[in-house]
């Protein structure tokens, strides 16, 4: 019997929130109040704003001639506290910059988004993107980004 009353009490709280917020939002909607009340963001049609200083997924940049800016110096991999960057370097036979990455992997599952790799880069080859928070994947291995994924527009 006591349980029944507790359930009624809980539903009462829910109903109160609904009614109060409905009232607040109606006033806001007709322009009588600036308080919007608690309203669910209707993702994906509607998004919350990200803060301007947030830096998310990584990008590898290219030079004017289309070559990757990266010279595979491993500075980002050295600076990375999460040890999530894997680089395999190779000889670039035609270019005066002798070194280029054959493989450049970032495991975003391990990444702490600290931005040290961007700080460490001597060639301004790696940067972090803003306003793209959708990084979820169904498999952990899909979170390992390779050059193709990292340079995609």
């Amino acid at each position: 019997m006591k349980l029944f009353w507790e359930a009624i009490k809980g539903l009462g709280i829910t109903a109160r929130h609904l009614i109060v917020n409905l009232w607040k939002f109606s006033l806001y909607y007709v322009g009588l109040s600036r308080d919007k009340g608690v309203v669910t963001v209707e993702y994906p049609e509607e998004r919350r704003e990200t803060f301007p200083r947030v830096r998310l997924r990584h990008r590898l940049l290219r030079r004017e001639d289309g070559r990757l800016r990266c010279v595979a110096c491993f500075m980002c991999a050295t600076a990375c506290p999460a040890e999530c960057i894997y680089i395999e370097a190779e000889e670039d036979p035609d270019h005066p910059l002798e070194k280029r990455p054959r493989q450049f992997l970032i495991d975003l599952g391990k990444c702490a988004y600290c931005g040290f790799c961007v700080e460490a880069c001597p060639e301004d080859a790696i940067r972090m993107d803003v306003h793209i928070p959708e990084l979820a994947e169904y498999e952990r291995d899909n979170l390992i980004y390779d050059i193709e994924k990292l340079t995609k527009k």
Partner: peptide, 9 residues
């Protein structure tokens, strides 16, 4: 033998 390396090489 550290890092991501041993997964790929």
């Amino acid at each position: 033998t550290d890092r991501l390396r041993n997964r790929f090489s």
